[in-house]
Design a protein around this nucleic acid. Structure first.
Length: 269
DNA sequence: CCATGAACCTGGTCGC
DNA sequence: TGCGACCAGGTTCATG
């Protein structure tokens, strides 16, 4: 499911409920959901620890306590939400934690989502690239680093060790904004278009956060809340319709194994 | 370094 | 209605 704006929305929505509280227990229905720790690790390192902060890093939801960090990655279909009951009719609850008189529930149809337990942020910080909404995603940084690489630009944008948080929707939207064909080799993109691409990335991510993210295919990422950035999409899922800018055809192809949408006229190779 | 394909899972949709 | 093929907002690993 979720890319940076959706993960940000989820992190903000659970933050107000769990900051200052502590988890008293965890139940696991799908064992693989715990990626690098066990329930006894949870009981030793997480249980009873006050939650100091909840925020997002890349596409991870970070739950920070004094001596431990719980990180949650939603992958394709994960939902993380606060609820006062556990609905026994739901078939895909992978795990849940108890705090105060409520639960933090992790529901995940495809079971790709994972929980991680870390002592600090070193592991994630080492593997993840720059945050696109932070200051270090600067014009000079992007100009320099895009030129250094020789990859199809869409594939580079999806690479979390380069810039993190961008996924399939926002890659297509940002490339459309900058009028770049998704298969253009990064080193050959003009300075002018790189500058435009940076603006496009920031713009689509920020506007989506403002609207609570994108919800498509009936898929809601929070308990019941539906983000409405889908209304603002220009190319993603718009194959067969006309480009909002030049009225030519939007087509869908595959680029680096992912469905990819672009305008045949304003995004030429 | 870069591209490709498979694997991890379930469910919805489309064509016959 | 049924069935198979294909698709899905992500990541990782192996291979060439």
């Amino acid at each position: 499911m979720p890319e940076l704006p959706e993960v940000e929305t989820v992190a903000q929505s659970i933050k107000k409920h769990i900051e200052g509280a502590s988890f008293s227990s965890m139940s696991v229905n799908w064992a693989k959901v715990l990626h690098n720790f066990s329930l006894s690790d949870f009981n030793r390192d997480v249980k009873g620890n006050i939650i100091n902060s909840v925020h997002r890093r890349a596409k991870y939801i970070i739950i920070e306590m004094d001596r431990a960090i719980l990180a949650v990655h939603l992958r394709m279909t994960g939902k993380l939400y606060v609820s006062s009951t556990i609905d026994e009719n739901k078939k895909h609850i992978s795990a849940y934690m108890n705090f105060r008189d409520k639960y933090l529930v992790f529901e995940d149809v495809r079971k790709f989502g994972r929980f991680y337990l870390f002592r600090n942020m070193d592991y994630l910080n080492n593997k993840l690239g720059v945050e696109p909404l932070e200051n270090d995603f600067s014009e000079s940084w992007l100009l320099q680093n895009i030129k250094k690489r020789n990859r199809q630009i869409k594939s580079l944008l999806l690479d979390q060790s380069f810039v993190c948080g961008i996924g399939n929707i926002y890659a297509d939207e940002a490339l459309w904004y900058a009028k770049i064909h998704p298969q253009t080799i990064s080193s050959s993109i003009s300075r002018k278009k790189i500058i435009k691409l940076r603006i496009g990335i920031i713009k689509v991510l920020k506007e989506s956060i403002k609207r609570g993210g994108t919800t498509i295919r009936d898929y809601t990422y929070d308990f019941s809340y539906v983000g409405n950035y889908a209304l603002k999409l220009n190319v993603f899922g718009k194959e067969g319709s006309s480009c909002p800018r030049c009225h030519s055809l939007i087509i869908k192809t595959k680029v680096s194994q992912r469905g990819t949408h672009y305008c045949v006229k304003c995004q030429k190779k």
